[in-house]
Amino acid sequence: MSMQPIVMERLFTASNAKVWKAITDKDEMKNWYFDLAEFRAEKGFRFSFLGGPTPEKQYLHLCEVTEVIPQKKLTYSWRYDGYEGISFVTFELFDQNNNTLLRLTHTGLDSFPKENPDFAPSNFVEGWTSIIHTGLKKHLEQ
């Protein structure tokens, strides 16, 4: 069975330039996304990061930028080191009266090995979410 991609849209009260910077500048990305050693919005640029539910259980994410249209579109591959499958994450920005509609699309999730309990994302995604919520809130309230 082929899985429907995840498509999520969100309107931000910020210009396309500002949102683009937030999703491509590593100093801004670490505030809301992942703390990367380096990031460049260039086709072919590879990056990796660890993410997981606990400090003991971390998965190495391997990504490669596949498409860049400055301030409009960014796509990179997203897979897990040591596991089958590859997915793609796309951010698209649309101008709406100087605000930005962001459309996030995540395709190919069905290519990951579903039966591997070690990989099953049920716990570790929840873990990420709580890290983001509590971690970022703390950061902003400092």
Binding site: V19, W32, T129
Partner: peptide
Amino acid sequence: IFWAGKLDALELHL
């Protein structure tokens, strides 16, 4: 859930 959390975080960041 993961992406909703990330987009929330992006909104807070912006």
